[in-house]
Amino acid sequence: MPPPVDTKKVNTDLFALTYGSIISQLLIDCENVDEVNKQLDRMGYNIGLRMIEDYLAKSSSPKCRDLKDVAEKIQHAFQMYLNVTPGVDHWSQANDEFSLILYSNPLTEFVELPDSLQTMNYLNILPGVIRGALEMVSIPVRAWIKSDHLKGDHETEIRIQSVNKK
């Protein structure tokens, strides 16, 4: 008899491999790498729109008071969905901008990025998810990958900037 399968663990593998397959397919279909980045961001945005409902239902968290609070909730959401806790750092002086620092994450577990793809943001789905989710709770932000572990940077940094909040 084969050994019992650890379903939680393989789920992570399934997720990472599915995401990897999507990227492979996008690289075949899209004309250039910018297009891949854009498509990933768009997919993430759509996921974020749905995911926020799930997050609010599961965490029953109240309305965010300020951006510090937002950062904490995002941290919590990462913990909940990807089982990693990103660091929150590099606040701007006006407290309207911060960075999420990812030291490791399940999506890049099997990934090596060739030199020819240095302009691709492998994790570009994440800023999209964050932007989409926050938009649904009336917190418009811009989010982008600032540095990427896969490209030799020390860690992966997602920059989040609040826009025209009144």
Binding site: Y19, N46, Y81, N83, P106
Partner: peptide, 15 residues
């Protein structure tokens, strides 16, 4: 990474 929530896979699949 250890376990992750099933819903993550579901969301990715829907999209």
């Amino acid at each position: 990474a250890g376990m992750i929530d099933d819903s993550v896979n579901d969301f990715l699949h829907i999209e």
